[in-house]
Design a protein around this nucleic acid. Structure first.
Length: 302
RNA sequence: CGCGGGAUGGAGCAGCCAGGUAGCUCGUCAGGCUCAUAACCUGAAGGUCAGAGGUUCAAAUCCUCUUCCCGUAA
């Protein structure tokens, strides 16, 4: 069961493996894009290419769907970036195990923004966890984990891709252990758990009262999703959003907080803790992304 | 037709509402100044104003249609 692109390498590895894949459960096609075209998840296309059955229940807890799934009598259910909460009845279906692949080092960063969280918080590593599914979100016993370092240049996108590539190996290892009965179960330490809530577009608004160091990490963590921005007033007096892309640089000079200023053809913004952020790549609403120096040529602030 | 912004020399923009010489900040090239320079001075090249049709003596500008780009929409 999976929907997000991060699950694609893992799914491909299952297709290529000896295991008997019964099919894919993914989210229904959703309207997407400017024209709101109904678009299927990419992973669905992959399943169809290999003639695998695909289920797209509106609600994974619906009786009709659960009955169908029970009829399949799977040994193991694998869940990764599926996007729906699973009921106990579904968890009880597989005869061997139901396992989840989660893109963080649990018990840290349970929840949807598990990739962005550790980058924004300045951790030097993250990873994938494979664990048993229980009713409580991302709280099951751990089978195994794989770590990956976070570099100062890493973005949400780069870490996402690396974790996606790392998953097949970890998953196949966990499956091998489960089928041979050698898998271990390590309970999560509840007191150490943290939660990373689902991100929305507006969560990317930059709060310049925070330090430039924190904001720099946030800008990397939220790239490309959900992106970061701050409001500005254009020449016509309209308030628009200016999207900010990495990389950005941190300076230790002090300026008024949230005040954009131009110095030496560079776009600087004063932040909290006597620090300043230098933006290098921005995108005004209705326009393409451009170097900050280009933006300044025709869009002077004030 | 989901909502909205946009298309003007290589880049970013102004000009459009009140039609009538193609403008600004840069970049490029040439020359000058300088020990020297990404700095400064002078000059030059480079645009079918996205495309098509219409109105007009005259359209970047007004009207209609088309194409393309972007934001929003998880």
């Amino acid at each position: 069961m999976g929907t997000g692109d991060i699950a694609i390498p893992a799914f491909q590895s299952l297709i290529d493996s000896e295991y008997n894949l019964l099919g894919l459960v993914t989210q229904p096609d959703k309207p997407v894009g400017r024209k709101q075209l109904l678009t299927p998840p990419k992973i669905k296309e992959l399943a169809l290419q290999h003639d695998l059955p695909v289920w797209q229940p509106e609600k994974a807890k619906s009786k009709a769907f659960l009955t169908e799934l029970e009829a399949l009598a799977p040994d193991i259910i694998i869940v990764m970036a599926y996007g729906q909460i699973l009921t106990q009845r579904l968890i009880d279906i597989p005869t061997n195990a139901i396992i989840n692949v989660h893109a963080s080092l649990l018990p840290l960063y349970r929840g949807a923004s598990c990739i962005q969280g550790p980058i924004a918080d300045g951790h030097d590593q993250t990873g994938v966890t494979i664990m048993h599914v229980v009713k409580a979100l991302d709280a099951g016993d751990i089978i195994l984990q794989r770590t990956t370092p976070i570099s100062p240049e890493d973005t949400g996108g780069s870490v996402h891709d690396r974790l996606a590539e790392q998953t097949p190996d970890a998953l196949l290892e966990a499956l091998a252990q489960l089928s041979s009965g050698t898998a271990t179960r390590t309970p999560q330490i509840e007191e150490d758990s943290t939660y990373a809530p689902k991100l929305l577009r507006n969560d990317g608004e930059l709060d310049f009262s925070r330090s430039a160091t924190e904001l720099e990490r946030l800008i990397r963590a939220y790239h490309p999703w959900p992106g970061t921005f701050f409001p500005y007033t254009d020449k016509k007096g309209k308030t628009k959003r200016l999207k900010v892309f990495p990389p950005v640089s941190v300076h230790s000079t002090s300026h008024p907080i949230g005040q954009p200023l131009i110095e030496d053809n560079k776009l600087l913004i004063g932040c909290g803790d006597n620090s300043t952020l230098e933006l290098t790549l921005v995108q005004p609403e209705g326009s393409k992304a451009m170097p900050a120096s280009d933006f300044l040529k025709g869009n002077p602030f004030g």
